[in-house]
Simulated scan of single mutants.
Amino acid sequence: MSDSAGVRRVVTRDQVVRGGCRFFLRHGMVDMDGLALTLAISRATLYRVVHSRDGLLGDVLWLLAERTLSRARKQRRRSGVDGVLEVTWRFVEQLRMAAAFRTFLRSEPETAARVLFNASAGVHPRAVSAQREILVEAGGAAESWSAATLDQVAFLYVRIVESALYAELFGGVAIEPELAERAARAVLTHGATAVS
């Protein structure tokens, strides 16, 4: 799309992702034609900048998740395993209350599963990396774990939380919150022994 003088509008990936976040929060999805119109660029320009809808969705979902996770981390009152679990359940509660996110999961379950769980979209690896940081911040057993152990515990922990949060995307039954917490606590409590 060009302006009235025929000059092509230039946008950065960051501008597109932030625009995608606003679009997602309003509509519970990202429609590429609608987003291009909102950003006053052509669809071709939009794809030139982001390459794929899945890639854009991954960046949008992670940016929104990162903001929520950052708030949960700032609100943490405990340390050690209890502090890690506190951050997780604050984050999970906020996601469960996010209307746009729930709309997306209901209306595009296959896309959601692909973007949230496949490494190529970038959400899962970033979630594991953030969880690793949370483990280190909380102290406790994590202080004595090797880097490899931290990576593996973070990965397992995130997968447990995902299983509880997105049971419908895995085609499973809803997991009781108490059971999910016991499983998550077990990974954190026995991680060093189990992984070493």
Rank of each mutant, 00 (worst) to 15 (best):
57 L>M: 15
86 E>Q: 14
184 A>V: 08
73 R>Y: 12
163 S>R: 01
29 M>S: 13
192 A>W: 01
80 G>V: 04
5 A>Y: 13
28 G>E: 08
49 V>P: 09
28 G>D: 08
132 R>D: 02
30 V>N: 10
120 S>W: 07
131 Q>S: 08
143 E>A: 13
88 T>L: 08
181 E>R: 10
151 D>L: 12
16 V>R: 08
132 R>C: 07
117 F>G: 05
179 L>N: 01
102 R>G: 06
72 A>H: 08
193 T>D: 08
25 L>I: 13
76 R>S: 12
133 E>S: 12
68 T>A: 14
33 D>F: 03
106 R>E: 14
141 A>V: 07
177 P>F: 14
193 T>I: 08
189 T>L: 07
16 V>N: 07
56 L>H: 09
110 E>L: 13
129 S>N: 04
9 R>N: 02
25 L>M: 15
95 L>N: 02
179 L>D: 03
10 V>I: 14
8 R>D: 13
71 R>C: 03
126 R>C: 04
38 T>K: 02
78 R>C: 06
71 R>W: 13
84 V>K: 00
175 I>N: 01
158 V>P: 01
29 M>P: 00
135 L>E: 07
18 R>Y: 15
134 I>E: 02
178 E>W: 01
36 A>E: 00
74 K>M: 15
68 T>K: 15
82 D>A: 14
90 R>N: 11
174 A>F: 13
50 V>I: 15
1 M>P: 03
8 R>M: 10
144 S>H: 03
144 S>G: 08
59 D>W: 01
177 P>R: 12
95 L>D: 00
71 R>H: 10
93 E>L: 03
96 R>S: 01
48 R>K: 12
133 E>K: 05
43 R>I: 04
16 V>M: 15
145 W>I: 12
158 V>Q: 03
93 E>G: 10
175 I>L: 13
168 E>N: 09
5 A>F: 14
147 A>G: 03
27 H>V: 07
27 H>K: 11
187 V>P: 02
130 A>S: 05
189 T>P: 00
161 V>E: 07
183 A>M: 04
79 S>D: 11
56 L>V: 15
143 E>H: 03
51 H>F: 15
44 A>I: 11
173 V>F: 15
122 G>S: 12
138 A>W: 09
36 A>I: 06
35 L>Q: 05
50 V>S: 04
38 T>E: 15
119 A>M: 10
24 F>P: 00
76 R>G: 05
196 S>N: 15
20 G>D: 07
139 G>Q: 06
36 A>N: 01
65 A>L: 04
19 G>I: 12
44 A>N: 11
193 T>F: 00
131 Q>H: 11
79 S>W: 08
169 L>K: 02
41 I>W: 02
32 M>L: 11
40 A>F: 01
69 L>G: 00
195 V>G: 12
138 A>K: 02
3 D>I: 11
138 A>F: 14
42 S>T: 06
3 D>E: 10
